[in-house]
């Protein structure tokens, strides 16, 4: 199993570096832009905080973008949320199905390793990649704070990164399950799902009637504005996330062990 895990890591390293440096780099650039925009931020913050539902949706009614903390939560929070969600979807949606799509399944599964062990290795690979992705992005964001000589709000920052990691794991869990269904490339479905979850959260924060159902989506407990303004996390949202993640992984194992492999 360890050989399969190492091979998966090797094949995915380039992808991991490109995505983490791009998303982390974008976040870092956003943070560095804060200094040049700082002079105009006060007026902008006042305007943005009085835009009703729109301000609520982006957390600008509770946090001021005139402070680096508020700016980070609203701007970098959006960049990281979208980027990491898309990355989680992309790596998980193809990791199982690629063996049949690329016709490598006959080689891999003719070796003395069970489907369960192969899936365990692939699942472990996704977990490590999400963890490394979060670490690289976290380090780059922290560098941004240090470069601006601003104090890092450690508690909120770590909570934000960990909740984003959980959100990534939930999206990856769903995509892992979809990947086990057949040997077709469903990259579009994975990216679409990540976008739908993001938009669901956004609409849920704008439309008052949907607020009660926000907790169902993976972005609900990972919202940067809520975390940085000290709002308590919805326990039911986290429990649902854990249930969905575990269910997705179990479904993938059960389904993949039962079905025929395409040549």
């Amino acid at each position: 199993m360890i050989s399969v895990f190492l091979k998966e890591m090797k094949l995915n390293t380039k992808n991991l570096l490109i995505w983490s440096l791009t998303v982390g780099g974008l976040g870092l650039a956003c943070i560095l832009l804060y200094q040049s925009m700082q002079g105009d931020m006060k007026e902008m913050a006042d305007a943005f905080s009085n835009m009703g539902a729109f301000s609520d949706a982006f957390g600008m009614s509770t946090l001021s973008i005139a402070t680096l903390k508020g700016y980070f939560a609203t701007e970098v929070g959006t960049v990281h949320g979208l980027g990491s969600g898309m990355f989680a979807a992309i790596i998980a949606i193809g990791i199982i199905s690629k063996e049949e799509e690329g016709h490598t399944g006959e080689f891999l599964f003719s070796l003395p390793v069970s489907r369960t062990k192969v899936l365990a290795a692939k699942g472990l690979c996704i977990s490590v990649m999400l963890l490394v992705f979060t670490l690289i992005c976290g380090i780059l964001y922290a560098i941004g704070f240090v470069m601006l000589s601003e104090e890092i709000p450690t508690g909120e920052f770590v909570t934000f990164m960990l909740r984003q990691l959980l959100m990534n794991a939930e999206i990856a869990g769903i995509c892992f399950a979809i990947s086990s269904l057949s040997g077709k490339n469903r990259m579009g479905t994975g990216l679409g799902l990540a976008m739908i979850f993001y938009v669901y959260d956004l609409i849920g924060r704008v439309v008052p009637d949907m607020k009660d159902y926000l907790y169902l989506g993976p972005y609900s407990y990972a919202n940067a504005s809520e975390i940085f303004s000290g709002e308590k996390v919805s326990v039911s949202a986290v429990i649902i996330a854990l249930i969905i993640t575990v269910s997705g992984v179990i479904f993938a194992f059960v389904r993949y062990n039962k079905r025929d492999l395409a040549s």
Binding site: S3, K7, E106, F107, L111, S263
Partner: peptide
């Protein structure tokens, strides 16, 4: 499968890997 050597008709492997790595990978597994 520990005691079987199988050669499929299409013989596909991971395109980015080197031949030596594929052969070693099969032995490592």
């Amino acid at each position: 499968l520990e005691n079987v050597g199988y050669m499929p008709s299409e013989a596909w492997f991971y395109g980015a890997m080197k031949v030596a790595d594929v052969i070693k990978y099969a032995a490592d597994v």
